[in-house]
Amino acid sequence: MARDGSGGQFEVPCHDEESGWFDASSSCYWRLLDPQPPAEDPVWAGRAPGEGAVYNGQCPGQPLGGGFRWFQNPPPGYGGGPDLEALAEEAVTKMRLLGADIGIAPKQDSTGTVGIPVWVWNGPGPRTTGPTSASATALGVTVTATATVQNVVWNFGNGSIVSCPFPGTPYSPSAGLNPPSTTRGQCGIPGYSRVGEYTVTATTTWAVHWAGGGRQGDLTTTRSSQVPVRIGELQVVGQ
């Protein structure tokens, strides 16, 4: 299925003798140039011939699409095989990746205090921190993907945003009123400045590496989770 310039769809054959093999992700046909362009051709962008290859693209319904393009690996669907990138995406779906399993101090069912540090962390597990793997197969070709959390961006709902490339450390009473320190593998903020109810949102970026069918590649995907936090003022008895 190809897309025209207006976003409409129309059917095209998977292979054309003149144009080559169809790639659904770009809606273009790609044909390996034979012979390949000389080493000084700008299409190589400084790469040496033999490092990947140059293909000629023709894109039905896209007047400005196509042309000569360098690819490290053959375009998806080239040679009549399965779309390896689509198989990688299918493998990611099978993993059922989640957002952070949020731990927070103060606890969700309690009330924190203005100016007191807030600690957050991501509970470890195959679907929350990784690594975790899954495979997908089509036309006798198997692609295996492995996902690992790259980082978690914590939005505390008050304008404070912290990025942590690690799960974080659960709060311990031994930490007292010390604020969490990213240099020590801890995540959080020094505290809220105003009374109120806030939503803490954790956006996890998963880094996925896949391999199969003689190719490999990388992709990223995100998942989010949220918890509420309630902040009050310190009440001093006797005043």
Rank of each mutant, 00 (worst) to 15 (best):
L64S: 14
S193G: 14
F166Y: 15
G50Q: 11
A91C: 11
W21T: 04
Q235H: 15
G217N: 07
G168N: 05
V149E: 10
S224G: 01
P42N: 11
P38N: 12
P13N: 03
G123C: 05
F156K: 06
R223L: 02
P13Q: 05
P117H: 07
C187R: 09
L32N: 07
T199P: 00
W21I: 06
T221Y: 01
A86F: 07
A91R: 11
R194I: 00
A202K: 06
S224H: 00
S26L: 10
G125H: 10
V195K: 03
P42F: 12
S19W: 15
N73S: 14
V237I: 14
G115K: 01
G61M: 08
A175S: 12
G7L: 04
S19I: 00
R184Y: 05
G176W: 07
S110W: 02
G103E: 09
G67M: 08
A136L: 04
E85D: 13
V143M: 06
P228C: 10
T111C: 02
A91G: 09
D34S: 15
G185P: 00
E51S: 15
P74S: 09
V92K: 11
D218Y: 04
F156W: 05
G176N: 05
A202W: 06
G168S: 06
P60Q: 07
Q216R: 13
C59G: 10
G52Q: 13
Q150H: 03
S26F: 06
I116W: 02
Y192A: 01
V114P: 02
I102Q: 07
G80S: 09
G191W: 02
A88E: 13
R184W: 02
D16S: 14
T203W: 04
G50P: 09
L64F: 12
G115F: 03
V195C: 00
P180F: 03
I102H: 03
I161F: 00
S193I: 01
L97G: 09
S181F: 01
V12S: 05
W70S: 06
G8S: 15
Y171G: 01
C28E: 10
T169L: 07
P38S: 13
D218C: 00
A86S: 15
